[in-house]
Design a protein around this nucleic acid. Structure first.
Lengths: 256, 256
DNA sequence: CGCGATTTGTGCGTGTCTTCACAAGCGCTT
DNA sequence: AAGCGCTTGTGAAGACACGCACAAATCGCG
């Protein structure tokens, strides 16, 4: 329990002894708040109002207050939130007070980039091992880590107490990698492969599919285009669309 | 409905003339269904039941049926859904019947990987231009595309009718890039930079933050650890955790 | 010491999402 | 042609999330 409270509150014992169970939507927003708070702290602010923080995080202030209220009452009415205290609380709740070790499987195109992504290290995660199935890649050194063969995955995961496994392999290999991660005791997986993983209860999987994001955007593009093509709706384009962006274009205004 | 069947249309009618406005949650799942359907089609299946497809997509079958019902009635009771027809419908709704052009800004660590990611091309997106602010990188050729300077962004975006902008720059540069994309007429942005973008109404932004995903997983790790530390809950580990996977990690098992 | 300005924390109405359960519909078999 | 099994599509209920609006609490100032 790193919770050093140097000058702070000797009154208050350990602040958050029990882990409250937060709504999932709240959990997903806490990292965003945390990032905004770190920015504030770097700029010398020591308190912040919900309004300010909400704007910085891109959410409604009422939502932010409700989210933070789930952690406990760490604000001061009439003043705002203590930035440093709030950072501590959120980091504690998110389990970031201890550095978690990450194993990255698949050092292809994407995996290579992830291995070099410093956003992980700067936010409390340490990539502890790299794996790949391709013998050509095994032995390669990336960012000071040697790529191991995926056959060693389970053993190494156990030995190194890997907390989180990141799968950046082709879809065809992802399930087997997941199985090995689970066999190695890993209970959290971040999956970049475009496929559904089946894992036993108690193992959390989050999926990031880059193409899916584009497809969602594509839908909105499609919808927006079909709206501008039907001027019936009371939706006038605010900005004068550049050029002759065909209003009633059969192929949806791509023609130009 | 406007069911205007253009002379070109063969047997199969164009089916969905008007774009239904779908729940956002449904839109987010459609790409997953689509991927599962393509897998089925490759394996020779021509019909599929909601149960099967739901399993393949990792969702509840009732949810899947309700999602698909928003597109219209394209299933056959007692039989299931026609795979090819459903693919067509989903692709149409998602606006994938036309290839959308993508501009990628920031060819650093992550951007480089995205530029080479074939998952975009295989799913109907074409990366049409690369940009970076670093003069050293400008002129470099990646995957057959020459990196241009970000100053050209607005102009090129307009000229090439870029539909989607992908931001893979450091956070500090992201807002300015977004502004330039908007100025170039781009109305959909996929943001990998860890910051909030402010854009005018009518512009859609989706954010992917790799570190946030890890932090969410970290929370669940933390919660799971605090649960195993309190055996009061009726939650017994199903699988005998392999080896000496520190069940009572001193740093994690708070109370004990 | 009291008052007003300010900001948090939250009760509550509203809307969205999820899930269950079942009627309606389809094809196959007899 | 009628019955039967199977699957879709959907009404309804529950769960969850959101945002308003306001009471409660705190600070600063006269």
């Amino acid at each position: 329990m790193s919770q050093h409270r140097p000058p702070g509150a000797p009154e208050r014992p350990v602040a958050v002894p029990a882990l409250p169970d937060l709504p999932e939507a709240t959990v997903a927003r806490l990292p965003e708040y945390l990032r905004a708070l770190h920015n504030l702290a770097e700029n010398g602010h020591d308190t912040v109002s919900s309004e300010w923080l909400a704007t910085a995080a891109g959410v409604n202030s009422a939502k932010l207050r409700k989210d933070l209220s789930h952690l406990g009452s760490y604000g001061t009415r009439g003043v705002g939130y203590d930035v440093a205290l709030l950072i501590d609380q959120i980091e504690y709740v998110l389990g970031l007070t201890q550095r978690r070790t990450v194993a990255l499987v698949g050092v292809g195109n994407l995996g290579h980039a992830l291995a070099g992504y410093d956003g992980f290290a700067t936010r409390g995660f340490r990539i502890a091992a790299l794996f790949d199935a391709d013998p050509v890649r095994v032995g390669e050194e990336i960012n000071g880590l040697v790529v191991r063969h995926v056959d060693e995955l389970s053993r190494v995961a156990t030995e190194e107490s890997i907390a989180i496994g990141v799968i950046a392999t082709p879809a065809a290999a992802a399930q087997r990698v997941a199985d090995r991660l689970v066999a190695g005791g890993v209970t959290s997986i971040l999956n970049f492969a475009p496929c559904v993983l089946s894992v036993p209860d108690g193992v959390d999987v989050r999926k990031v599919d880059l193409a899916v994001e584009l497809q969602i955007l594509s839908f909105h593009e499609h919808r927006k285009a079909s709206l501008t093509a039907l001027p019936a709706v009371g939706e006038a384009p605010l900005t004068p669309l550049p050029g002759n962006l065909a209003a009633t274009d059969p192929q949806e205004a791509i023609g130009t």
